[in-house]
């Protein structure tokens, strides 16, 4: 398999205003590389949900995107509080987001289910008190 193009971003957890910038940058890069719009949209939405989660639930983290000709891998790693019950977190409507986050338009408990829907593979590794890493793959 050929070497991937690797895109890396620091996701700032202090500043909600900038949340989503890494996903916007990835979308732009994938467009320039000429990927089909539908694949780009799936990657963008899944990464955006994960990026926002890192900002609102985990004080930021690091995003890595490995771009292969036939698939795109997204890895989102944070050192936040971790997720105690992953299958509960995956349920539609489950959210621990406080009211101030809801008033910004997040906290419907739809992010993780959306990430699963839009990707071909998704895996969460998480340890309470240590952090969370989300691995997603979209086949082109």
């Amino acid at each position: 398999m050929s070497e991937p193009v690797v895109l890396k971003y620091n996701v700032d957890g202090e500043n909600f205003t900038s949340a989503g910038e890494a996903s916007v940058a990835v979308k732009k890069s994938l467009r320039q590389m000429g990927f089909p719009p539908e694949a780009i949209r799936r990657v963008s939405i899944a990464m955006y949900e994960g990026e926002i989660n890192m900002v609102i639930h985990a004080d930021g983290g690091e995003a890595t995107v490995n771009v292969y000709p036939d698939k795109i891998e997204i890895i989102l790693a944070d050192k936040g509080p971790g997720i105690a019950d992953i299958s509960l977190a995956m349920q539609e409507g489950y959210s621990t987001a406080p009211d101030n986050i809801r008033s910004l338009g997040f906290g419907a408990g739809m992010g993780l289910p959306n990430m699963k829907r839009y990707t071909d593979d998704m895996r969460i590794e998480s340890e309470v008190g240590v952090g969370t890493t989300v691995y997603m793959t979209v086949n082109v």
Partner: peptide, 17 residues
């Protein structure tokens, strides 16, 4: 259509084309 006016609304729209 939305009642929210923060930057994430714009980025959400961009993600969805």
């Amino acid at each position: 259509l939305t009642g929210l006016v923060n930057p994430q609304v714009i980025r959400t729209a961009e993600m969805m084309d």
